[in-house]
């Protein structure tokens, strides 16, 4: 523990800006994955334990696209769309069979896919770690803000995640599709009776959640090396975020992700060996005080 260092940091704007920005970056990637988890749980009632594997797929799709086209834009699109399409197929063929089943069978189906996908990635791309490297467009010196440093790529990444959050909120809050989704989350049968193809809605929601995870994987590819099993850590982190924010709440996932990011960013200054424990303790406290999460509706 080194609380002096933490106090020193808080009294220097350079440290505060730098650590806040790094907290945001860490949080935003987790948010991209967690938003999919929370969306799928909120609408489909499924806890998708395979979401980390989708993040991994996104990274590998993006790597391949980047090698072929040399374009980071294409890489991100490939990561998001490729993983989204995979998600739709996965939902139709497998997840759709365990709707309404208890969480145990859902867990098993997802776990089976984590095993299969990790192994498939190893078979296709090999077991060695792979690195994309920073695309030329972002190979710029960091921006200086109030004495703190913010790399352009991370500014882009944060903007991308915030834009995704806004787009997602708008999609669910303002469009007809959003209305259907919200209605289906409350009562699927009733929406079905109204002549709406709820299977399609479910598949699209799962695909959307998968696409978000895939985009996160693609965005992570330039700075994190890709290996089979890389989705393992971010899965647990996104669960923490989902629980803290409230299962089913996009806004909650956003706030929860930033919170975890900040704990990690300032924790590394003040209590580097306890940050992990602190995040789990926080999850426990939130569950005990407000089980539905900070932004969850009680009674879900």
């Amino acid at each position: 523990m080194n609380f002096d260092a933490l106090i020193d940091c808080f009294s220097a704007s350079a440290c505060v800006v730098t650590q806040i920005s790094s907290g945001l970056i860490i949080g935003m990637l987790i948010f991209m994955v967690a938003s999919g988890v929370t969306l799928i749980f909120g609408v489909l009632g499924v806890v998708n334990f395979a979401h980390g594997a989708l993040y991994m797929l996104g990274a590998y799709f993006a790597l391949t696209a980047y090698w072929v086209t040399d374009s980071f834009t294409v890489a991100v699109l490939a990561g998001a769309i490729g993983t989204g399409l995979f998600g739709v197929v996965f939902e139709r063929l497998f997840i759709s069979r365990v709707y309404g089943a208890d969480v145990l069978s859902q867990l098993l189906v997802c776990y089976a896919f984590v095993l299969i996908l990790d192994d498939a990635v190893k078979a296709i791309w090999g077991g060695d770690f792979l690195s994309m490297g920073m695309p030329e467009a972002f190979a710029l010196p960091p921006l200086m803000i109030a004495g703190g440093f913010v790399p352009p790529f991370y500014a882009f990444l944060t903007a991308f995640a915030v834009a995704s959050a806004i787009a997602l909120a708008a999609l669910l809050g303002l469009t007809r599709f959003g209305k259907i989704v919200r209605a289906a989350a409350v009562n699927r049968q009733m929406v079905g009776v109204l002549g709406i193809n709820t299977s399609l809605v479910y598949a699209l929601i799962f695909g959307l959640g998968a696409a978000l995870a895939g985009a996160a994987g693609a965005l992570a590819a330039p700075v994190r090396s890709a290996t089979p099993g890389m989705g393992f850590d971010i899965l647990i982190e996104s669960f923490i975020v989902t629980v803290i924010g409230g299962m089913g709440s996009i806004a909650g996932a956003f706030v929860g992700a930033i919170l975890i990011g900040m704990i990690r960013a300032f924790g590394t200054v003040g209590f580097p060996l306890a940050t992990e424990g602190v995040t789990f303790a926080m999850m426990a406290v939130v569950l005990l005080v407000k089980p539905a999460g900070l932004f969850g509706k009680a009674g879900r």
């Binding site: 497998f94 098993l108 189906v109 095993l115």
Partner: peptide, 22 residues
Amino acid sequence: HHGMVMGVVLLVIVLGLRKGVL
């Protein structure tokens, strides 16, 4: 490739033998 084999076996058991377990 034990991951792939194990995954497929689990899927078959959960989804295929639904009648037994589920």
